[in-house]
Design a protein around this nucleic acid. Structure first.
Lengths: 143, 143
DNA sequence: TGTAAACTTATTAGTTTAGTAGGAAAAGAA
DNA sequence: TTCTTTTCCTACTAAACTAATAAGTTTACA
């Protein structure tokens, strides 16, 4: 039931971009320095977030990344599923999975199904903005 | 966020023993046959459940396993934590973990903390008996 | 003494994790 | 044009984990 560094770093990257949302395109180097994460490793996580259309990119000099939507419009669920893939606790619950042979007699299916819904709903209920607002030093009004 | 076969098989093993709770000691071979799980693999999962004092054992001829408590007194949470270890989604939330260097400034901690509580409470709220009662053909009163 | 069961330890092929490494392509600046 | 700074892309790797299989030991009933 662990979340890998890929997912956790993706969330931290997106939160860092949220904190600097008004500052235009942010170089990955700056995020890596602030978050103390290997820039080379972050570079590998970026494509997953791009595939989910969560980022805007500028290449070359003064280039960098910017959130494709306002922090209040991006949920932790979106970020995690982009980075980690389907969050379903068992493979038979994954999007497009064909039902397993034991499905009819499977006593455990409802357990995992319930767990999946619970986790998904929880993570869908938290936006990047929500996390920022929850900072110890959060201003009363953000952005 | 996957649950491994170790955890899933542990739950199925415990549910199988729940279904035959009144029949004394059940040989692992029978569970393995019914559940279509390698008996040799189940043998390796047993020690985890034993460490959690979830099972009673009889060795030798006519031996087998039996739940140490009534199915209504064993939760899915207990079974999963025995088999899989701490279910916390991030290592800094694990039992006895020392707080990480970035704890003070970590924006993501509350996310994982909330997720951990949510999942734990959900799984603690489901007993083996609850799962049996939820069977399509469940009798009105069990055991 | 035979047999059926639990118990123990070792091995293994394959996959995943968490990176590191090296360079190509783009684009603005000098 | 050339330099520099950035993203982008592919390959590689050590270590750990997963999901078993295998071989044999111990226990205890018949």
């Amino acid at each position: 039931m662990k979340i890998s560094t890929k997912g956790r770093y993706a969330v931290r990257l997106m939160l860092d971009l949220s904190e600097h949302y008004t500052e235009g395109y942010i170089a990955l180097k700056d995020v890596a320095d602030r978050q103390e994460i290997s820039k080379k490793y972050l570079e590998q996580i970026i494509p997953y977030l791009n595939r989910g259309q969560l980022l805007l990119t500028n290449r070359g000099h003064q280039g960098g990344y910017k959130l494709a939507k306002h922090p209040s419009e991006i949920t932790i669920f979106e970020v995690l599923t982009c980075a980690e893939g389907d969050l379903a606790p068992v493979s038979c619950l994954q999007q497009g999975a064909e039902p397993c042979d034991r499905r009819g007699e499977c006593l455990t299916f409802p357990i995992w199904d319930g767990l999946n819904k619970l986790v998904s709903d929880y993570l869908k209920g938290i936006t990047l903005q929500d996390v920022l607002n929850n900072r110890p030093d959060a201003p009363e009004y953000n952005i």
